[in-house]
Simulated assay, not measured.
Amino acid sequence: MTAVHIARWDESDLDLLERLNAPEVRHHTGGPETDEEVLARHERYLRGPGPRSGFMFSVALPDGVKVGTVGYWERIWHDEQVYEMGWAILPEHQGRGLATAAVRAVVAEARAERHHRYAHAYPSVDNPASNAVCRKAGFTLLGETEFEYPPGQLMRSNDWRLDLTA
């Protein structure tokens, strides 16, 4: 299995977030954000748990090189309080199982919270890599759905669910 280390988001992670704000990374999530939006996202991540921030982590290789982000946050889905999970890996590090390893690590964090039964992920139906991450990380595909992301835009997504009590 591919080894990664996840660490709570900190001030030094702004550069990583800026590098992840590339068209090839943000293709399935509404495209790159403005510099102001990236900085606002970084500030939310630093503040920690709260609306649109949740528990965010940098993803690093065993040698400490930061390669991506992973996290989870609360949301209401079908009248139920759940966690939503999301991730991104720099293009030069994709295809090596790093996202799957990072998601497994963050699932362990969410399980330890013992706060919600389910975690969901909503990758675009047109994003085979993120859908494969969900499958490999043990999520169950519930089907296609319309999902609002970025705010104000509907996208066709798959609804993947993981039972955190299992």
Results as ranks from 00 to 15, higher is better:
residue 153 Q to A: 15
residue 52 R to N: 11
residue 12 S to E: 09
residue 39 L to H: 15
residue 110 A to T: 04
residue 2 T to E: 01
residue 25 V to L: 13
residue 5 H to Q: 09
residue 81 Q to S: 15
residue 111 R to F: 10
residue 48 G to Y: 07
residue 98 L to A: 04
residue 153 Q to T: 14
residue 11 E to I: 07
residue 9 W to K: 08
residue 55 F to P: 02
residue 109 E to M: 02
residue 123 P to F: 10
residue 46 L to S: 10
residue 157 S to N: 12
residue 19 R to P: 00
residue 35 D to R: 14
residue 35 D to T: 13
residue 54 G to P: 04
residue 63 D to G: 02
residue 66 K to Y: 03
residue 57 F to E: 00
residue 121 A to K: 03
residue 108 A to P: 00
residue 166 A to L: 13
residue 126 D to L: 14
residue 47 R to E: 05
residue 90 L to Q: 11
residue 14 L to Y: 12
residue 13 D to H: 15
residue 138 G to A: 09
residue 144 E to K: 14
residue 35 D to K: 14
residue 72 Y to C: 04
residue 97 G to C: 13
residue 125 V to K: 13
residue 66 K to M: 06
residue 104 R to W: 05
residue 5 H to L: 08
residue 81 Q to E: 15
residue 83 Y to C: 00
residue 138 G to D: 09
residue 15 D to G: 11
residue 151 P to Q: 11
residue 133 V to H: 08
residue 68 G to S: 10
residue 96 R to S: 04
residue 68 G to R: 11
residue 17 L to S: 00
residue 7 A to L: 08
residue 148 E to D: 14
residue 105 A to I: 06
residue 92 E to S: 13
residue 102 A to T: 07
residue 14 L to M: 07
residue 70 V to Q: 02
residue 20 L to E: 07
residue 163 D to I: 05
residue 84 E to Q: 15
residue 74 E to F: 10
residue 54 G to E: 05
residue 106 V to Q: 00
residue 36 E to L: 11
residue 33 E to I: 05
residue 139 F to R: 00
residue 153 Q to M: 12
residue 134 C to T: 11
residue 77 W to T: 03
residue 21 N to D: 11
residue 120 H to P: 02
residue 165 T to I: 04
residue 60 A to T: 02
residue 82 V to G: 10
residue 3 A to W: 02
residue 162 L to Y: 09
residue 110 A to M: 09
residue 22 A to W: 05
residue 98 L to G: 07
residue 5 H to P: 01
residue 127 N to C: 07
residue 35 D to H: 13
residue 140 T to Q: 10
residue 84 E to S: 15
residue 74 E to N: 07
residue 18 E to I: 15
residue 155 M to S: 12
residue 20 L to C: 08
residue 78 H to S: 14
residue 61 L to K: 04
residue 20 L to T: 03
residue 10 D to R: 10
residue 117 R to I: 07
residue 113 E to N: 02
residue 38 V to R: 03
residue 14 L to D: 06
residue 51 P to F: 03
residue 93 H to G: 00
residue 15 D to E: 14
residue 37 E to R: 03
residue 147 F to P: 10
residue 41 R to M: 08
residue 110 A to Q: 06
residue 159 D to T: 11
residue 119 A to I: 09
residue 138 G to C: 09
residue 60 A to Q: 02
residue 1 M to K: 03
residue 90 L to E: 09
residue 145 T to W: 09
residue 106 V to Y: 01
residue 84 E to T: 11
